[in-house]
Amino acid sequence: MTYNKPLPQIGADTRFFWEGCRKHVIRIQKCGNCGHLRWPPAFLCPRCLSADTRLIDVSGRGTIYSYVIYHVAYDPSFKVDLPYVVAVVALEEGPHILTNIVECDPHKLTCDMAVEAFWDDVTETLSLLKFRPAKP
C-alpha cells in the first residue's frame, strides 16, 4: 500500500539524520568545540557558534518530556491512527526530539516515563524514529 502521510522535507541540514534512520541509527550533531549535542540540526552550535560539527550515534533510550493525545485528525491520513500520541522525548544524551509513542495505551503514559527507540519502516527508503515504553 502506498504511504500517504506527510514526508520529511530532507535538506542539506537534515540529510545525515534521515540517512541514519534508514540504517536504524540515531545520528545527532555534536559540537567539535564545546561538545554540546544539538537538535534540531544546524550548521552552527547554538551554544558557542562553532561550525566544527561531528556526528555521534546515540542510544535510543530516553524519557517522555511531554506528550499529547490526538483525538482529531488534522490531516486525513492520520485518521486511521486515532487516538495517537505525539511526544517530545528527552534523549538520554540530552537533546529533545519530537516523535510518536507507539505500542502503548495512551492513557497509561506519564511524563518522565522511560522509552526506547522503535523503528517504523514506512517505505523502502524511509524509516521513522518513534518510541515505545521501555521493556524492563
Binding site: K5, P6, L7, P8, Q9, T14, P40, Y70, A73, Y74, D75, F78, D81, Y84, V86, L98, T99, N100, L128, K130
Partner: peptide, 12 residues
Amino acid sequence: RNGDDAVFGHFG
C-alpha cells in the same frame, strides 16, 4: 505544517 513535525502527525 511546522517543518517535519507533520511527519509525526503534529500540527498547529
